[in-house]
């Protein structure tokens, strides 16, 4: 499927959507948003790109395989649970940096967990969508 309208729009929309997905990820702790929604938006952006430019092009801009995204997402989420374990607290206790960072704000292991969810959901959704598109 090639449509000039879609491929022109997606060039503008893709960076915006990806930026929006990161925005959703970061505001997720105390406001609507979070890793799950962010990951879905990111996956939707890439899927749109795949619709406009083809699956091969989508794999090119993704650089890594969606499976790698799933694995790294799980790894990041797991590490957010294990870090408190190292300090002798229960699994997944929230640990926070004592000072705020610019842009990110107050950072702690819950953000790490959300980042893991973001990568995992994006990878999972893309794996399903891209392999179904490849089959056709």
């Amino acid at each position: 499927m090639s449509s000039i309208i879609l491929s022109t729009t997606i060039r503008l929309l893709l960076p915006l959507l990806l930026l929006f997905s990161v925005f959703l990820l970061l505001r997720g702790h105390n406001e609507p948003g979070g890793g799950f929604v962010g990951g879905l938006v990111a996956a939707a952006a890439i899927s749109l790109y795949a619709l406009a430019e083809g699956v091969a092009a989508a794999h090119r801009i993704l650089i890594v395989n969606p499976r790698q995204l799933i694995a790294s997402g799980l790894l990041v989420a797991l590490s957010s649970g294990v870090i408190p374990l190292m300090t002798g607290r229960p699994f997944q206790s929230g640990l926070w940096l004592p000072y705020s960072l610019p842009v990110l704000g107050h950072v702690g292991t819950p953000l790490l967990f959300d980042l893991g969810v973001y990568l995992l959901v994006a990878g999972m959704a893309l794996l399903i969508v891209l392999s179904l598109m490849e089959e056709e």
Binding site: R67, Q68, A71, S72, L74, L75
Partner: peptide
């Protein structure tokens, strides 16, 4: 499982 996925 994560290590197995990384060694896909």
């Amino acid at each position: 499982a994560v290590a197995c996925l990384l060694a896909w």
